[in-house]
Amino acid sequence: MRKWSRKNSLGGLKLRSEMDAHEAEVLRSLVGAVTGLLTDRARAAPEDDLAALTGLQMGNTTPPDDPRLRRLLPEFHRKEPGSPDADRADLNSALRSLHEPDIIEAKVAAGQVVLETLPPEGGKVTLSPEQADAWLTAVNDIRLALGTALDISTETPDSFDSDDPRAPHLDVYHWLTWMQDSLLQALAP
């Protein structure tokens, strides 16, 4: 992948890069995996009679079991010991039920923008600033999910031994980090 560049045109600001076929295939696969996780989560939401009557979309009330989804859909409120709401277990459930469907929808839509703007066989990629924002969201979600699967922390080495099965995945994680950084720098004025 080439570094993202910033080009002003008659149609406005455009962000450009180029990916080879293998990179495009890897990115498409990762976007599909993350949006699949999110879509499955949305489909697992319980049926709600009030939602059916009002048209309001209701989500799950419990946090996801999958650690990758827990990272993508964290709790809305952290209980602080001794605070007045420390024993209000229903607060996160209510907030999750109300907001999780919209969050999932936005994340899946961002992934869809990547799939629509990424040439299937690789090649030149040209994005508007709005599309670039969607790419940043999708790439960040992929990094969060992959980082959780790899158990990335401040103590994770820059590389694993070549015989470690996580080594290629860590390389992909670093590539995504570079891609995100390059796109952010190109977006900055």
Rank of each mutant, 00 (worst) to 15 (best):
N140F: 06
T137C: 06
S97K: 11
S93C: 10
N92L: 03
R96G: 12
I142W: 03
P119H: 04
A86Y: 10
V114A: 03
T148C: 01
K124S: 09
L144R: 07
S93W: 00
Q112G: 14
T148P: 02
A94E: 04
V108P: 15
I152P: 12
A145N: 05
T154E: 03
P84Y: 05
E116D: 15
S97A: 13
P120V: 15
L150G: 07
A138D: 12
V139Q: 05
P84L: 15
S93M: 13
P101N: 07
N92P: 08
K124I: 11
W135L: 07
E116L: 13
G147I: 12
A138I: 11
A134P: 10
L127I: 09
A109E: 14
A86T: 02
A94S: 13
L136Q: 12
G122E: 07
D90M: 11
T117V: 07
P119S: 09
R88A: 11
I103L: 13
N140T: 14
D133V: 13
L146N: 09
L118E: 02
S153C: 07
K107C: 06
D102Q: 14
G122D: 10
S93V: 10
A94V: 11
D90C: 13
V114G: 05
I142E: 05
T154K: 10
E130W: 08
R88E: 09
T156C: 07
L91E: 00
N140S: 06
P129R: 12
A94K: 01
S97R: 14
T126S: 15
P101D: 08
R96Q: 13
I152R: 09
R88L: 14
Q112D: 15
V113A: 03
S153Y: 04
I103W: 04
G147Y: 04
D102G: 15
R96C: 12
R96K: 11
A132S: 11
I103E: 11
K107D: 08
S97H: 07
A86W: 01
L98V: 11
T148N: 00
D141W: 00
T154S: 06
G111K: 00
T154Y: 01
D87I: 04
A106W: 10
T126V: 15
E155M: 01
A149H: 11
E100L: 03
A109T: 10
A132P: 06
L118F: 02
A145E: 00
D85W: 07
A134L: 06
K107G: 02
D90I: 08
T156H: 07
H99P: 05
A86H: 10
A110I: 06
P101H: 05
L118M: 04
L115H: 00
I103K: 09
H99A: 13
L95S: 04
S93R: 14
P119A: 01
L146I: 08
G147L: 06
L98M: 08
D90S: 15
I152Y: 09
A134E: 06
G111C: 12
T137L: 07
D87C: 10
A89C: 02
R143N: 00
P101M: 05
A109G: 13
G123Q: 14
G122Y: 06
A138L: 01
Q112W: 13
H99E: 13
